[in-house]
Design a protein around this nucleic acid. Sequence first.
RNA 1: GCCCAAGUAGCUCAGCCUGGAUAGAGCGUCUCCCUCCUAAGGAGAAAGUCGAAGGUUCAAAUCCUUCCUUGGGCGCCA
Length: 569
Amino acid sequence: MKDKVIELIEKSLIEGGSKVKTEEIKKYLEIPKDINLGDFAFPCFFLAKDLKQSPNEIAIEIRKNIGNPPEEFEDIQTSGPYVNFFIDKKALAKNLLSQIKKEKEKFGAILTKPKDKKTILVEFPSPNTNKPLHLGHLRNMAIGESISRIAEFNGLKVIRANLNNDRGIHICQSMAAYEKYGEGKTPEKLKKKSDHFVGDYYVLFNEKSKKDKDLEVLSHRMLQKYEEGDKKVLSLWKKMNKWALEGFDETYKRFGIKHDKIYYESKIFQKGKEIILGGVKKGVFEKKEDGSIFIDLGKKLGEKILLRSDGTSVYITQDIYLAKLRFEEYNLENLIYVVGNEQEYHFEVLFKILEILGIGSKSKMKHLSYGMVNLPEGRMKSREGTVVDADDLIKTVQDIAIKELEKRAKLSKKELRERSLAISLSAIKYLLLKIDAKKNMMFNPKESINFEGDTGPYIQYSYARASSILSKSKKSPSFVPKKLGEKEKALVRKISDFPDIVEKSYHSLNPSIIASYAYSLAQLFNEFYHESPVIGSDSEEFRIALVEGFKQVLGNALFLLGIDVLEEM
RNA sequence: GCCCAAGUAGCUCAGCCUGGAUAGAGCGUCUCCCUCCUAAGGAGAAAGUCGAAGGUUCAAAUCCUUCCUUGGGCGCCA
């Protein structure tokens, strides 16, 4: 359609005696914010100098040269320095709705042949096993899952991977506190979710170690003993990790996350030495007098140590190893790390080193850097226990959803539980995804949890309304409208935007584009059904088809966000 | 000190990549609308020197420079 508009403009300009390149017309042609100004608009300012006419005159001239609008157009008008093109929405509706009916849950996807299927790996949320998941992890998971779905939707094979950071001094801190103050308690005895149980000792460590210096010493001794393979320490480590991981699994499941591949830092943290030593032989890394190995990455990135003077690995060493392993194991097209923006420097260095080593080119790797979630009091701090816990948050929001549901209808316990969970997760996921991932965000517990307006439940509600309308109509759908109201036209236009939105979010790995689209689509639908009753109207057949099309597309959008739809609310 | 990001309505955020028509939402505040397909809805009002100053341009929230403010990062930690 856009091409058609460009063609019309080009032709009319040639008639008017001006030669403007197609690309230039394409560059200036825009989609007006206000639908009343058409579906495409062409501003004429840039032609004024060349043609020695005012933009307004040029617009009128172009309009005149086009003559009668071709059949795809309802109208072509000038408005000051703009030429506005109005697409015939009846024809658009007919084509669009039959296409959606045909493609269903595939509508909006970029078509790829199965043989061109490429594999990417998305790593998230890679938690530390010394404390339960918090709101930051939920943001990570919502983003990781959504971009995985967007990639799959567009024909890629996605490996969802997780790397458990299950060793190190922070783990030993929880262990030390448990050893000293745990008195043999267990999650079962306390009836506490097991990762929360572990996290309590991490907080306890930080409280007690302010006065109890022995605790600090104990944690360091434990780390040493762990690395020496001390049986007693290893068994405590195993026990506490199991608690942490079991707790995480429960949260993943509740949140709707499932991994295809799980890595453990404890199994790889000493790997990668050979790669580094190979790099020394190749001459890309250097050795210092004390025996440590490093690389000088220039003024901006500086020097980076890759092996300690005692020959042991540092964090980045294992990351190099793991990246190599993954590229080999899966023949990856892309490797995407969903990790907070505080690690931007780390990944810049990592990717540079991987490229130098020939393991993967920078263009294949991506640090999907997302911003921190802040509270009104400031940053969340696990060690001080001032975090919004993932499980607690879901529970709190679910309780609110239960209250709302009880106001509306009598439901079975099972139905109540399932619906309230779906609603609470949509509220949380949408809240986390609608904000541009790269930006830090504010979470205000008192205000952020809301089911009205620009929220997940609002969008779910529109979907449920569509279902309800469809279930009540006895007519069969027709793609051909007799006539279209303003709201119907706007809705058709919006639905037709979906493939572009998908493409945009796919190329930029940005779910927030889909989130805001889903919201504005739902908004238009609500306006539409308030203005135009479906059942019993003259246009019932067409409106049923429109509602069906809307429902499909909104459902597709919500799927890409990892949000479940509800037929009833 | 150096590097990166952000600063848009009381609050939370879109818009910035690719400069264009009166800067958009939601929450909150104030009005209306349930004999009408679910009011988790709809209609409307008030509310903005787009951090500041320069520059580029016919045109700047958008591009460039400087400055200010706020986060984050600069470990032989992970």
